[in-house]
Design a binder for these strands. Structure first.
Lengths: 207, 207, 207, 207
DNA sequence: CATGAATGAGCTTTCATTCAT
DNA sequence: AATGAATGAAAGCTCATTCAT
């Protein structure tokens, strides 16, 4: 069997095992057995548990980013872009729950090298959201007056909400990608629109 | 030294160690040494690594929930309650980063028993948000027509956004609890208000 | 059983195993079993295979140097000192063949850290031989005119001869320490005496 | 490429690797890579690690013995023969440090089969020294009265001194083969001469 | 002639856990 | 109340060796 194929099988097995047991609790024995190969072969192809984990993260992150990018058409209005991006995101995470678990639950909690790998993916999304808000404000011909840090905060809030909803959708039976996307659009778009218009909530003013 | 005090010292050491090393990588030796006691004593008081970890989660979850509850006054308007709750949440997570790391990063990623422990805390917040929306709708004298599952989704979105912002605030220098709370209010309140009024975003309608 | 005693038992077992199997071929399992303890205990007390090996080398080297020193009385004539030293050396190596094998066969052939450990012992002997020749020359009231490097070379020759004879005596039945010492005195003392008198062999002059 | 050539390349690589890493630490992978061939080919030609090591020892031992033999002319006087033999020995070991390391450091320290291989080489030298002493005694028309075992002891002493000096010469900058040979002649010839004349050192007589 | 693919067995090391005192 | 002493079990990793092509 050619090397490339075996490697993908190993990555499949590793993603599944890391997702279900966690990075430390997953043993190379389990991964090798699930992949249907001997342990030395895993080491021959992927060198170490660390590198294997990194390879999983990279493959899953790339796959997710590609899926989201493919779902968005930049010529459409900003809200439509966000909607399409969220739909693609929830669809992909629903179809690859183990990959998503590796990215969201495992990679971020096991030390710098792995967290950094995921952080680059997150930053890509922050940039995307940034552009989205900028474009939307331009379309609406209003000056959003949003500081860089404020945008970063909003992006983190949006991503966190999306991540949490992805987990919720994956663990709650009957929640579709569309429903998750719809919930998040309802939750977030009004606020983003307000901010683009310069409207803000303040504790003193109240509702 | 009385048992209760010793136990708290052990939990302090355990929370710090679990937060910094992760559940599996943290060893009972390290925890015992950091607590300044012998390992058998840790076992005498807390029985096993699992129970020790569970005790950490429970203590930190309780402490966080208590802090948030103490910050909210039910007689105030809904948005003010949310603002106060968020402020208390971000303040507490900033003051107890290790406890927060145990809850957010470790507990959820190491198997059912621990994740379930955190889930009860989350559910408490879902209930809170549920009340919030219900009350706000009543105050606004409008019928929100929100299904239970929709509220659950919104609560997950809100919590996810808050968690993500807490991490962001803890790792980005100069971001205060107030700023994080403000960002999240701006992000979420408009959307929640819309939903209470029955207004929704839909892909066909667009902006 | 107190720690100090157990440690010596482990070192005994380790010396025997390293001597018989070689450093790499000796397994920690074998050593632990021979010592009558579990493997983790060996690690608890001696940290690693490297440190265990180093501890063996240090103990055996110290023991050998002590034995040789105890056999020599500095107030006696040089040849008598050499004879006593050699006798003590061959007696000790005959009584501790495994310790000698560790020093001579294993320590020198397994990388810098270990070889260096033995080299310090050798240098101590070089110094001893150096003094011996110097004193003998003074006693004989002649100026030996021996350069430092020449003495170093002679010391290496003497030590090499002694090491080789120790192996030979240990593996040839019926060879006593006295016989080995006698052989080496006959072999080496005449040459050393000549050199102290300034007499040398040269290829052109012949015998 | 003809088999004989390939085999020599493999032996070259093996000698270098065994000398630098030691028998156990040297891996067949490293050797095959250094030889520029695939691992199965090494096995095809040399069957196993043990046989490969044995082949190295035999080749290097043969090469050394040949070099020493070629340096000695039996028609010359005994001291000259010894001088020429030592010169050839030190020259060869200086020119083939890896081969020498395999013989001196590795072969003797890794179990019976290999040590025995080297022992045959040593015995050849014992025989040579035996002849040397016998011839010299005949030339000097005196009866040495040396028992076989005494000669064996002397040969071991001489060899040990030579081995030790070879290491010293290889690791001390600026020491030539001639200097090492000269040191060893000065060290050993007077003693050997004495013994041939029946003169001995004894502890009671002193200097 | 030569190799890519594959593995059984064994190694060092670590850890949660217990027990006699 | 507290600990020094001790271990069964398992993990990551490496290596000599083989076979189908």
């Amino acid at each position: 069997m050619p090397r490339a194929v075996r490697e993908q099988q190993m990555l499949d097995a590793a993603v599944e095992t890391f997702a279900r047991r966690g990075y430390r609790a997953a043993s190379m024995d389990q991964i090798a057995e699930l992949a249907g190969v001997s342990k030395p072969l895993v080491y021959l192809y992927l060198n170490s548990k660390d590198e294997l984990f990194t390879a999983c993260i990279r493959r899953e992150a790339g796959s997710l980013v590609t899926a989201v990018r493919a779902g968005v058409r930049p010529e459409l209005p900003a809200d439509r872009q966000l909607w399409d991006g969220l739909t693609a995101f929830f669809t992909h995470t629903a179809e690859h729950p183990d990959g998503w678990a590796v990215l969201h639950n495992q990679a971020r909690t096991h030390g710098e090298p792995f967290a950094a790998e995921v952080e680059t993916m997150r930053e890509e999304i922050v940039t995307f959201v940034n552009h989205l808000i900028g474009n939307a404000a331009r379309e609406a011909r209003c000056d959003p007056h949003l500081a860089d840090r404020e945008v970063a905060g909003l992006a983190h809030a949006l991503i966190g909400a999306a991540e949490s909803l992805a987990d919720w959708a994956n663990t709650t039976p009957g929640v579709s990608a569309k429903e998750a996307a719809s919930t998040l659009m309802n939750f977030s778009w009004a606020g983003l629109e307000n901010l683009m218009k310069g409207e803000r909530w303040s504790p003193s003013a109240g509702r």
